[in-house]
Design a protein around this nucleic acid. Structure first.
Lengths: 227, 227
DNA sequence: CGCGGCTTTGATGTTCATCAAGTAAAGTGG
DNA sequence: CCACTTTACTTGATGAACATCAAAGCCGCG
């Protein structure tokens, strides 16, 4: 697609099916790619919503910064996911922060242009609605999944989440700290560690620092399901 | 607006600003109003998504039916809220159930027509996106609010929720059972009751069966904030 | 090298779910 | 309309699950 100088942009495939070459050109001419290092802020809670952001590579966390220094992780976004989700069509400022947990690259398009395109091209608007809807759904349903589990079930759940949705392997390097796991599943760091240790003692996983190897997948799945 | 035989339909005001009279006529000609009695199913989890539903009056709960007979309440919808939210643009079947907790009336429009209108009228599509986005936001942020609290904070939170968002009064009849409160805030029925009793003993509220009177609003707000 | 953040383990106490048992209220069928 | 069944509500006792506090080792980074 030489209408766009971005050779690996999946946006086209994903939800621009109904967008003409001219429209893609229009969007792409203004798009900006921004690289981030691990730990960099991508979005700071409270800042103005100017861009529509999409993750090209890496891994980021979406989280809320509470008054009492406690952070709550809402969700992780992986390549091809939207980074701008909550609020972007309904508010002027971000209600959450986004930080890179791995080196990442975002693709940014001005919100005004997305809005304009949605207004003038209904099919595009509808695809956008579908995508946004899917993202919100996933977050809400995942949050209910986490909530109904006890601690060990939650830890098993997030390990399987990384295995299945991020790394596709039984062995992987945890991209997040124990503290961040705790902030995602709503528990304390100490208890996350204790649970991991328990899994190790029960020979369900092996732990080499940040690297986790799942040894007994069935047990882990069973714990995730039934506690 | 005599283009529509429905004299109190707020849809027009809310997100049909950019819709022509002909288009409103088109939508309204096919719309159906359905009354429900308290306890009636409005949507059953798993059923096909055919209609876009909007609550005209009453109060409903959106919830997930888990395998183990445990229900998790996702959210309550009040008049002018959308009843169809999750999945409706991204899936074919409902991932949740909706039940009337008070006598209610919904206004239903065929999804195919909403889709068609969104496709042909970009401004309408964009308003719809805004509304849907706002709903998802609210659910996600509320769920984080609940999650970060301890039991007494959660009970205080839901009492304030009813006071502020549903009844606008310090005295109201709880529209839900203790069990349903428990299913919403993720605790057991017994502990919800115990907490209410505690609030009563501390003279923060008065309880007459289903009727709650908030006597010490500041205390209740303080508990909701700081536990 | 030393500081700060992450990790780990243990001890302790609080919070909460579970079990049990009884009362009250509300729907059901004769 | 009343006996009957079911569902909602309430209280207490118990133990499990979990947070908190404390202390120490580890690791990366300036």
């Amino acid at each position: 697609m030489d209408v766009c100088n971005c050779n690996i942009c999946e946006l086209k495939d994903m939800f621009f099916e109904n967008v003409s070459k001219d429209e893609i050109k229009y969007l792409c001419s203004s798009k900006v790619e921004i690289p981030y290092k691990k730990g960099d802020f991508i979005i700071e809670q409270g800042s103005a919503i100017d861009d529509f952001m999409y993750l090209k590579s890496g891994l980021v966390k979406l989280y809320i910064h509470n008054d009492d220094e406690r952070e709550q992780i809402i969700s992780f976004a992986k390549p091809k996911d939207f980074v701008s989700i909550l609020s972007i069509f309904s508010g002027n400022n971000y209600t959450y922060s986004v930080k890179a947990v791995q080196d990442s690259v975002t693709c940014n398009i001005k919100m005004s242009e997305i809005r304009h395109l949605a207004e003038t091209n209904g099919k595009f608007g509808l695809s956008l609605l579908q995508r946004m809807s899917k993202v919100s759904d996933k977050i809400i349903l995942e949050s209910l999944e986490v909530r109904k589990r006890k601690l060990n079930g939650r830890v098993a759940y997030i390990l399987l989440f990384f295995k299945e949705h991020i790394f596709n392997s039984n062995e992987f390097e945890l991209p997040v700290s124990r503290k961040e796991i705790a902030e995602y599943i709503g528990m304390t760091t100490e208890n996350v560690i204790r649970t991991l240790t328990e899994f190790r003692k029960d020979k369900i996983i092996k732990i080499y620092g940040k690297v986790i190897e799942i040894c007994n997948l069935e047990r882990l799945e069973s714990i995730s399901k039934h506690g």
